[in-house]
């Protein structure tokens, strides 16, 4: 049988949506194999299936999560390389105490900024990272930041509109 271990360690720690998880490295159901992508670990091992895998090729953006605050593709990231990192997924955006939705989630509801919704978690995560870095992005900033996100239903116009209302509200 092929070796699925990490020679240097036998466990890793992931801090996912502020909760710390420790995983053994190996092939068992609740372990993380060396070849597991972060998308797989989040979805299958942690049951956080809000992160979607559209292409599994690094080319659609639907699996985007924040790694130490930076948007990355979880389908092109090995979980074992995330040891000690903070990961935020779509499930982690709501306020934990109040249950209040993130302003982006709310704006997406208000503008129906989705159709089938499969691309939506990835787009929201990338949008969150954008607004964290730049609270008042221009339309071009928004489009550039989301340029790696595929949406086949073409919700783009409503997404841009939703994000623009957030920044306009803030300006007021």
């Amino acid at each position: 049988m092929a070796d699925r271990t990490d020679q240097r360690r036998d466990s890793i720690v992931l801090i996912v949506n502020d909760v710390t998880h420790e995983f053994g490295i190996g092939d068992h159901r609740y372990q993380v194999a060396a070849c597991d992508t972060l998308a797989k670990t989040l979805r299958e091992t942690l049951g956080l299936s809000g992160t979607k895998v559209g292409c599994n090729q690094g080319a659609c953006g639907s699996c985007t999560v924040l790694l130490d605050g930076i948007p990355i593709l979880s389908c092109m990231t090995l979980t074992v390389e995330c040891d000690g990192k903070q990961i935020t997924t779509i499930e982690g955006l709501q306020n934990k105490e109040t249950g209040k939705l993130d302003e982006i989630q709310q704006a997406f509801i208000d503008h129906s900024a989705f159709q089938c919704g499969f691309c939506t978690p990835g787009i929201i995560m990338a949008s969150r990272a954008l607004l964290n870095k730049n609270p008042s992005p221009t339309e071009t900033d928004i489009k550039d930041a989301l340029s790696g996100h595929f949406c086949r239903c073409i919700s783009h116009y409503q997404v841009v509109e939703a994000l623009q209302t957030i920044t306009e509200k803030k300006k007021k």
């Binding site: 955006l93 989630q105 509801i109 919704g117």
Partner: peptide, 15 residues
């Protein structure tokens, strides 16, 4: 708002 909007934006919609 779409009836399933909250599920979609929170990642709870089940595909």
């Amino acid at each position: 708002p779409r009836k399933d909007a909250a599920e979609i934006v929170t990642g709870k919609a089940t595909y």
